[in-house]
Design a protein around this nucleic acid. Structure first.
Length: 279
DNA sequence: CCGCCGCCCTGCTTGC
DNA sequence: TGCAAGCAGGGCGGCG
């Protein structure tokens, strides 16, 4: 593994969810679900009074997409499987006959003999079966969607005293940015993570908006960041961990000014930044 | 509406 | 060397 820095977890965020969703869409489009195996009930959520397995069996996967950090498996019945990977969740395609890992929590056995496996060492993730209607009402703007404008972003920050980094992590405002990409975007925009959100100047807001979009796009191109746990649907690591500018780099020189990167804690999250060039 | 805290979890790191 | 405690952290429910 090339990434060998101080311990900092990989949390599947928007670019990782996007990479997984694209891979699953290619592999699973049109496949029928023959049998559903729930290996750990707590990681699976069904609508009240419904059996998760019974509802899904016989349905067909129409496409796989993403919303924020969630992977969304859309079914022919108009139902959806919403997968929240949290810290260590993985969605893996197991080719016919391949044994699932011991951390497998849920399996969809498909008609061609392959299986989709939800695995999760720490058991914090969830697979939720959604019957119909909007499930994502509490999720905010998609940072790579048309709705994410400089003006909209400025309005989101306006009057808020919350540290800007805490606001970037709030999924009800912006859906998909997690700890890695919040740190990276703030470094790129030269903004101190603890700055009250509402006090950013207009040029800073514009810069940060651009950095968020840029960092997420580049991370998707490199198929996400793999630090501890993240792998895509085929078990391959991403490449963005090799181009991180601040995340996990405590004590190492800033790529811009050469000063030592520091780690502080903000809203109980490790925060890496440069004291000299992030103002 | 807002902010804060504890919980869920396991594995790695730290300290004695 | 061994073992226990501490830490990591996204989302959510509860509280003030």
């Amino acid at each position: 593994m090339e990434f060998n820095r101080e311990r900092a977890c990989t949390l599947p965020e928007l670019p990782e969810a996007e990479t997984i969703a694209r891979g699953l869409d290619r592999a699973l489009r049109g496949r029928a679900i023959q049998r559903v195996e729930v290996r750990r009930r707590k990681n699976v959520v069904a609508p009240a009074g419904r059996s998760f397995a019974r509802v899904l069996e016989g349905d067909r996967i129409e496409r796989v997409g993403r919303r924020g950090k969630y992977v969304v498996i859309e079914l022919q019945s108009r139902r959806r499987l919403v997968v929240q990977l949290r810290m260590t969740g993985r969605l893996l395609i197991l080719c016919r006959g391949r044994r699932p890992p011991t951390t497998a929590r849920m399996m969809l056995h498909l008609e061609n003999g392959d299986a989709l496996c939800y695995a999760d060492v720490r058991k914090l993730g969830r697979v939720t079966l959604v019957e119909n209607g909007a499930w994502d009402a509490r999720l905010g703007t998609e940072p790579l969607g048309e709705g994410f404008t400089v003006g909209g972003f400025a309005a989101m920050l306006s009057g808020r005293t919350t540290p800007i980094k805490v606001l970037l992590l709030d999924q009800r405002r912006l859906a998909g940015v997690g700890n890695i990409y919040a740190c990276e975007a703030l470094w790129a925009a030269r903004i101190r993570p603890s700055r009250p959100a509402g006090r950013l100047t207009a040029p800073e807001v514009r810069r940060l908006h651009g950095s968020i979009v840029d960092v997420l796009r580049r991370a998707i191109e490199l198929r996400g960041s793999s630090i501890d746990d993240y792998v895509d649907e085929s078990g391959s690591e991403g490449g963005f961990q090799n181009v991180l500018r601040v995340y996990g780099r405590r004590g190492e020189p800033c790529f811009r000014c050469g000063r030592s990167i520091v780690r502080t804690v903000l809203a109980a999250r490790g925060t890496w930044w440069c004291r000299n060039c992030q103002k």
